[in-house]
Computed example of a mutant assay.
Amino acid sequence: MTTALELLQKRRSVKPAELVAPAPTPEQIETLLTIASRVPDHGKLTPWRFIIIDGAARDAAGTIVRDVFKSKNEDADDARLEIERTRFSRAPLVIAVVSAAAPHVKIPEWEQVLSAGAATMNLVTAAHALGFAANWITEWYGYDEEVLKRFGLKPGERIAGFVHIGTAARPPEDRPRPALADIVTHFKA
């Protein structure tokens, strides 16, 4: 069995709160994003982009999330507002993958969305290949128009995922996976 297959068989998501320093270096982040960019992209449209959220930017992003949450939930208590404020400081690095799918004369939008998903999964897999752990999540703020606007998304852009990256504080536990017999059929002529 190849190392790549072993990696794919063993990859596990790690909860953002269980991701600790160290995070990837700037050179490793460049490697991650280079690998994330090597995905099927019918028409070479590059229908995705990346936003790196690290260092003090994690707190700034969390403040945006808290402020937007508070504006929509005026009765939220301080404990809940603190949860919202720390959304991006749970892991030492967060990379947002932005889907920029748009109508095209030849390339269906669905293919463009799938390309953004493939870029997100490549990012997760590459993080694990470099010895880090990751978690791909969106949560409510990934769909909130005000948050997206304040994060610099353009009209029509969407969050494919926020990939939280760091070092696993402890080995991740596996979870039950579907039995192939339950999810595989054979087409018959």
Rank of each mutant, 00 (worst) to 15 (best):
D54C: 08
S89D: 12
A102I: 04
I83M: 12
R80E: 09
K70W: 02
S37M: 01
S89I: 14
A102M: 05
D59I: 12
P103A: 10
T86Q: 13
A61I: 00
I83R: 09
V97M: 07
R85C: 01
A61V: 04
L45G: 07
H104S: 09
V97I: 14
A79W: 12
A60R: 11
E84Y: 04
K72F: 05
P108R: 11
H104E: 06
E109Y: 07
A61H: 01
S37Q: 11
I64P: 02
E84P: 00
D77T: 08
P47A: 00
D78F: 14
A91T: 04
K106D: 09
L81K: 03
A76D: 03
A56Q: 15
R38F: 07
D78W: 12
L93K: 13
H104G: 03
S89N: 12
A101L: 03
V68D: 01
S71R: 12
R85G: 06
A102Q: 06
P103M: 04
R90E: 08
R85S: 11
G43I: 01
V98S: 05
E84W: 00
D54H: 05
I51S: 09
D77E: 13
D54V: 08
F50Q: 02
R87S: 12
F69S: 02
G43S: 08
I51T: 11
G62I: 06
A76H: 01
L93N: 07
K44V: 13
V98W: 09
G55Q: 02
G62E: 06
T86Y: 04
A100G: 13
E109S: 06
G43H: 10
K70C: 10
F69N: 05
R90M: 15
P47Q: 07
A79D: 13
I83H: 11
V98E: 08
I64K: 03
F50D: 04
V39Q: 04
I83Y: 10
W48A: 03
P103V: 03
A61L: 04
T86L: 10
I52D: 14
V68P: 02
I95A: 05
A56Y: 10
P103K: 11
A61N: 03
R38A: 15
S99W: 03
V98Y: 05
D75R: 11
A100Y: 01
V65C: 06
A56V: 12
V94F: 07
A102T: 14
K44H: 13
I83W: 01
F50S: 06
R85M: 04
R80F: 12
